[in-house]
Amino acid sequence: MSSPSKRREMDLMKLMMSDYKVEMINDGIQEFYVHFQGPNESPYHGGVWRIRVELPDAYPYKSPSIGFVNKIYHPNIDEMSGSVCLDVINQTWSPMFDLVNVFEVFLPQLLLYPNPSDPLNGEAAALLMRDRAAYEQRVKGIEHFLYHSLQWQ
């Protein structure tokens, strides 16, 4: 079996080859940003978020740390810190998963199917449960602002 450092390198290369824009932090492979687009069929469609990823020394046996850098309105994402409440990353991570899974499966699923019963953003959860149309309008308002005011280099 390959060492965790080799696996980190392989997973990062696989992510870069999957057409994601990746920005390295401090010339290492343990911290980087990934530009993530909101999934089709969701109120986040058209938005682009910068996700900070930190890989622990024990990756892939320990999950990556994932956080939204720019603002997003979602019941399971802390509006101030960008922390993500997602079981597959926080509790049920497996070495069978890789970084591409995070960006092609886990985060899109989170944005498509928010879980208001386990919120990090209580206001977003309450609005989603009370008035889904108003929630989606709020999401689209923030996403519209981000799309037009942030320029990725």
Results as ranks from 00 to 15, higher is better:
Met13Arg: 09
Val53Leu: 03
Met1His: 13
Tyr113Leu: 06
Gln91Tyr: 12
Gln153Trp: 15
Pro60Lys: 04
Met96Asp: 06
Pro119Leu: 14
Pro64Gly: 11
Tyr44Asp: 02
Pro39Thr: 02
Asp87Met: 11
Val84Gly: 01
Asn101Glu: 09
Asp27Arg: 15
Pro116Trp: 00
Glu123Asp: 15
Ile51Thr: 05
Ala124His: 02
Asn70Ala: 07
Val22Cys: 12
Asn76His: 06
Lys14Asn: 14
Gly47Pro: 03
Ile142Glu: 03
Glu143Lys: 15
Ser5Lys: 13
Glu54Ile: 13
Met129Thr: 15
Asn40Gln: 14
Ser3Leu: 07
Gln137Glu: 06
Glu41Ala: 01
Leu150Trp: 04
Pro119Val: 08
Val139Ile: 07
Ala124Gly: 01
Asp98Phe: 01
Thr92Gly: 14
Gln109Met: 03
Asn101Arg: 00
Ile66Arg: 00
Lys71His: 12
Ser18Ala: 14
Ser81Ile: 15
Leu12Thr: 12
Gly38Arg: 03
Asp78Trp: 02
Gln153His: 11
Ser65Phe: 01
Val100Ser: 05
Met13Asn: 08
Glu41Phe: 01
Tyr113Trp: 12
Val69Pro: 05
Leu128Gly: 09
Met129Asn: 04
Glu136Gly: 04
Gln109Trp: 00
Val84Ser: 05
Gln109Asn: 12
Glu31Thr: 15
Arg130Val: 11
Val48Asn: 11
Lys6Ser: 08
Gln30Val: 13
Met10His: 13
Arg138Val: 07
Glu54Ala: 04
Asp27Phe: 10
Glu9Ile: 12
Gly82Lys: 07
Glu31Gly: 04
Val139Lys: 03
Gln109Ala: 12
Gly141Leu: 11
Ser94His: 08
Asp98Val: 05
Ser94Ile: 14
Glu143Asp: 04
Val84Tyr: 02
Phe32Met: 11
Ile25Asp: 08
Leu146Val: 08
Leu150Gly: 10
Leu86Asp: 00
Arg132Lys: 09
Met129Ile: 05
Glu104Ala: 08
Asp27Asn: 04
Ser149Leu: 12
Phe97Asp: 10
